[in-house]
């Protein structure tokens, strides 16, 4: 499968999300928080190191950007897809955890205002809380799952091809 096809879901998904949100809110720069992006993206890979060997994590990353994955052994593709799905799940879970952490920061900010917080403060803080789950869900749905599926599809193709060759 060409590399561009593998990342089509990512491009289309994020574009649709961007267009939909920009139609509602004029300032979409509020949707970008570099620290949350870094945490939601990197922390799952650290957690994945607990369950998977580093060489498997590296191989899955390499396979995700490799143009010709059909030439790889079936076992490796299955393992790469498994790792990517696991990291995708951890990404969503990280987003949920970060939601709670941001909520604590919201409460801390409200406490600093000593009871003078307005509705705008609440709504702004609540919007910031939703960013991490949004990133986690979008990364899993538009990045990790589609890539894992495409790698697995190539694997299924290879199994069918090998079976046909054997016949």
């Amino acid at each position: 499968m060409p590399l561009i096809t593998r990342y089509l879901a990512l491009v289309v998904g994020w574009s649709a999300l961007f267009v939909a949100i920009s139609a509602i809110a004029p300032d979409v720069s509020l949707l970008f928080d570099p620290r949350t992006v870094a945490f939601v993206t990197l922390f799952p890979w650290l957690v994945a190191c607990i369950g998977f060997p580093l060489r498997d994590l590296g191989a899955s990353l390499a396979d995700a950007v490799r143009p010709g994955i059909r030439d790889l052994p079936v076992e490796r593709r299955v393992q790469s897809a498994r790792v990517l799905r696991a990291v995708g799940g951890l990404t969503l879970a990280t987003g949920v955890i970060a939601f709670f952490g941001t909520y604590l920061n919201l409460l801390s900010g409200l406490a600093l205002k000593s009871g003078t917080a307005t509705k705008t403060d609440y709504i702004t803080g609540f919007s910031a809380m939703l960013l991490a789950p949004l990133y986690g869900l979008a990364l899993r749905a538009f990045l990790y799952d589609p890539i894992a599926t495409s790698i697995e599809s190539a694997s299924a193709f290879a199994i069918e091809r090998d079976a046909a060759d054997a016949d």
């Binding site: 957690v47 994945a48 607990i50 369950g51 998977f52 498997d56 393992q79 498994r82 790792v83 696991a86 799940g89 951890l90 879970a93």
Partner: peptide, 9 residues
């Protein structure tokens, strides 16, 4: 969760 995923591999 990740231990389960890792051992299943």
């Amino acid at each position: 969760g990740v231990l389960a995923e890792g051992s299943a591999a």
